[in-house]
Every structure is written in C-alpha cells, then in structure tokens.
C-alpha cells in the first residue's frame, strides 16, 4: 500500500435504522486502507455486524454513503459466524459455488478449487459432506469458499466465535498466513480482545445504542506473528489497553 493513496473503501456518516425504530448505527466514518487487517471490536448488539453487511452491500444504509476506490465496489467475499455451507453438497461443490454463480464450468474452476482447499489444509476432503466434518473444518471450508474468487476485500463476521480455543488459535494463524500471501484487505468483526490484537494492524472499538466508533487504535506489532506473541509483554499491554476501551464502550 502506497502512503497517501485513497482508501479501498470509506464510509461517510453512514447510519442504519430498522423498521421497528432501532438505530443500529449512527454517523460512522471509517476509511479502510488497501491491504489493511482491520478488526472491529465491540460488545454484542453494537452494530458491528450491521456495519459489515452495509460494506458488503447486503443491506442498504439509511443515511450516509460508501465510497469505493476507483468508483466500483471491490470483489468481496464474506465469511459468516456459522460455516453456512450447503449440507446437500460436497466440500468441493460448496467451494465451487461462487465460481459456478459467476458462470465458470467445473473444468475451468477445478484448479482454483483445489488450490483453495489446499490453502486451508483440506486437500483430502473434496468428496466429503459437511456433516462429516468438525466445526473447525467446516469453517475452513467456508474460508476456502471465500478465497476461491481471489477477493480484494474479505469480510469476516465473528467467524471463529463458536470454536474451541485451540482450533481458534490455529485458524487465526492460518488466516494471517493467507492474508500475508494474498495481500487482501481484511475486515474482521469480533468481540474478543485477544483475537483482535493478535490479528490486526488496526482496531476500531464500537459502542452501542446507537452503534458508533469510540476508539481507533493502531497495532504496531510486527508480522509474521506467531504463537509466542500470545505471551509477549507488548501484546499483553495492548490487550489491556483495548480491554479498557471495550469496557468503556460496553457501559
């Protein structure tokens, strides 16, 4: 990313209210630099998922605008909190889905799919059905499906919240490795301080009623980050700082 270049995407005074009168978001200004790993950290119900869905274009904003670099939306992939796989389709067919919708034949898509499966460590599981996989493996399929289209912007909505700690740590490291290799821009929604500090180069903290940004913290830890970072003092200090911000936002 060249310094001073325009952000990949920027929201300006964006807001969302629902039909029942709830104001989920109000006046959110957020510019996301190309190649960033941004985490959005906040308590439940602060509108962080809504913000992600607005950026994805899954729901229109009530107020404000979203500006894209070059005027056209980036190629986006989305990873939900649940794996959100089609239970009737094999792992291979699930990963094929985005390419199939783009009109690619199985022959054309085969290389991309096999690469995506290899990237998440699921080489031997192409013919398996989702129900035969563990929670962590299902999430890996979901990530493979997201990266098979070679996205510019990867949006993840609390993707590892339902997983056990060991699986979550391993997926954190795999995600970082993939991010460094593919130079995506990542927006990662989470309510875990430790996870956000471990992953991101920038964290914004949101508070609720109405959802708004209350802190914007750069994370100056060097990449690649490894397991040993989780016990490093500067990591601990940042976690403490973010925990305080989160506690403030939760009041």
């Amino acid at each position: 990313m060249a310094a001073g270049s325009s952000p990949l995407v920027a929201t300006s005074k964006i807001g969302k209210s629902f039909r029942n009168g709830t104001v989920a978001l109000a006046n959110v200004d957020l510019a996301i630099a190309e190649g960033a790993f941004l985490s959005i950290l906040g308590p439940s119900g602060c509108g962080k998922s809504t913000l992600l869905r607005l950026i994805a274009g899954l729901t229109p904003p009530s107020t404000g605008t979203i500006e894209w670099q070059g005027g056209t939306p980036a190629r986006i992939s989305f990873v939900f909190q649940e794996p959100t796989l089609m239970p009737w389709a094999t792992v291979w067919d699930n990963v094929y889905l985005p390419l199939r919708l783009l009109g690619m034949s199985t022959a054309e898509a085969a290389t991309c799919i096999d690469e995506a499966l290899a990237a998440v460590g699921l080489d031997g599981f192409a013919k398996t059905y989702p129900r035969e996989l563990s929670g962590g493996m299902k999430m890996r399929v979901s990530i493979a499906r997201a990266l098979v289209t070679d996205p510019q912007l990867l949006l993840l909505d609390e993707p590892f919240a339902a997983l056990d700690e060991i699986t979550r740590f391993r997926l954190n490291e795999d995600l970082l490795r993939l991010w460094q290799r593919h130079h995506w821009t990542v927006v990662f929604v989470t309510h875990s301080v430790f996870e956000s500090v471990f992953l991101s180069d920038r964290i914004v903290v949101m508070s609720k009623r109405p959802g708004r940004i209350t802190a914007d913290v750069p994370i100056d830890l060097t990449y690649p980050r490894e397991e040993s970072l989780r016990v490093a003092p500067d990591y601990g200090a940042l976690c403490q700082q973010l925990s305080a911000s989160l506690a403030e936002a939760s009041q």
């Binding site: 994805a56 899954l58 989305f78 889905l97 919708l101």
Partner: peptide, 24 residues
C-alpha cells in the same frame, strides 16, 4: 438466510437461487 445473502453477494440470478439453493 445467510446462504441467500451469499448467493446475492456473488450476483446470483433468481433462477440460480431457486435451482441451486431453494430447491435443494
């Protein structure tokens, strides 16, 4: 619902959503 959102994100047509998602 999330799969419907995913289909829309990838620009699926009404027919594709019916054939590949709603019918199964």
């Amino acid at each position: 619902r999330n799969l419907v959102a995913l289909f829309k994100l990838y620009g699926a047509s009404r027919w594709q959503i019916l054939r590949f998602l709603r019918m199964p």
